[in-house]
């Protein structure tokens, strides 16, 4: 039997206390065997603790090596000048709705984590952000920030939230006819076949694409502002996006071969024209020809 009680170990040989306390009992005595047993137990314990420590350290090291590198140390010296300036702008104009850490504020503004500089470019460049007031839609208006400030905001949000970045190269470099097909399939149901925009529910609206820059259209597709769905690169490849932009801008800049475009609105505007101009002129004509009462 094995027990950890030294008294019980000593009892079978019935030795004196002196024997019991002697450091070096002769080998082969029961006391020596018990002592050896105790020593190996102690060693085992030390090894266990060391193993555990090693495993923990290893796990920690592996974790820190394999886990995504999350946000660099905020406020540390590693922040660039642009990011710092962007932080300043952010804290002055955006923080009340989008939160201290881009996490968003419930009922006020969405999180900006993951929206990327593309969203910042679209929202701020078209004047949608900063918002004048909370309402159904963020209308576009003259941009509040200068291009330089927009770059700083973009740098700050990109550095702290990550997400899609601005595209590069010729954004109109795509097949025109294919762009038209894609536009009618993906965009026309809200923006109208000619990009005139249209009403959505409850005061929301798809804006007119007239006069939109290529970069604005691209970043809008990439980030899905307001009510617009996100058209990520797996839904519309960068080439397809460029084709759509080519179509939208070609149509926008194209003259109306039929004469005055009357807003390219289709039958509503045409009905107005026939009643006001057509019937109006003809009534004038028959007043002229016929007699009055």
């Amino acid at each position: 039997m094995s027990t950890t009680n030294p008294q019980s170990d000593a009892q079978p040989d019935g030795g004196s206390p002196r024997v019991r306390w002697s450091r070096r009992p002769a080998d082969g005595t029961p006391a020596a065997a018990a002592r050896a047993r105790r020593r190996s137990k102690h060693r085992r314990r030390v090894v266990n603790v060391a193993g555990l420590m090693a495993a923990l350290v290893l796990t920690g090291a592996l974790y820190s090596a394999l886990s995504p590198a999350y946000a660099t140390n905020e406020g540390s010296g590693s922040e660039s000048a642009a990011e710092a300036a962007g932080r300043e702008l952010y804290e002055r104009s955006c923080i009340s709705c989008h939160g201290e850490n881009l996490e968003g504020v419930p009922t006020r503004g969405p999180s900006l984590v993951g929206v990327g500089e593309a969203a910042v470019y679209f929202q701020v460049h078209t004047g949608r952000m900063p918002l004048v007031r909370q309402e159904a839609d963020a209308p576009d208006k003259p941009a509040v920030f200068s291009d330089e400030e927009i770059d700083q905001l973009m740098a700050y949000v990109q550095a702290n939230g990550g997400g899609p970045t601005l595209p590069s190269g010729d954004l109109r470099d795509g097949d025109l006819a294919q762009g038209g097909e894609l536009f009618r399939l993906n965009c026309a149901s809200c923006h109208n076949f000619v990009g005139q925009g249209g009403a959505l529910s409850s005061g929301k609206a798809a804006p007119s694409l007239e006069g939109s820059s290529a970069l604005e259209i691209y970043t809008a597709m990439l980030t899905g502002p307001e009510n617009m769905p996100v058209f990520g690169d797996n839904q519309l490849t960068p080439d397809e996006k460029r084709a759509i932009i080519n179509y939208v801008q070609t149509i926008d800049n194209q003259a109306d071969p039929g004469g005055a475009g009357v807003g390219r609105m289709g039958p509503v505007a045409e009905g107005l024209v026939i009643w006001v101009v057509g019937i109006g002129v003809l009534l004038f004509g028959i007043f002229w020809m016929g007699s009055k009462a």
Partner: peptide
């Protein structure tokens, strides 16, 4: 002088597609 029903801007009919502000004549 006044453009009406610019069919080239509407595109060919495809049942999968529809545009906002699709109206009949008055």
């Amino acid at each position: 002088l006044v453009q009406i029903n610019p069919v080239w801007l509407w595109g060919p009919y495809n049942p999968a597609q529809v545009s906002s502000a699709s109206q009949p004549d008055w």
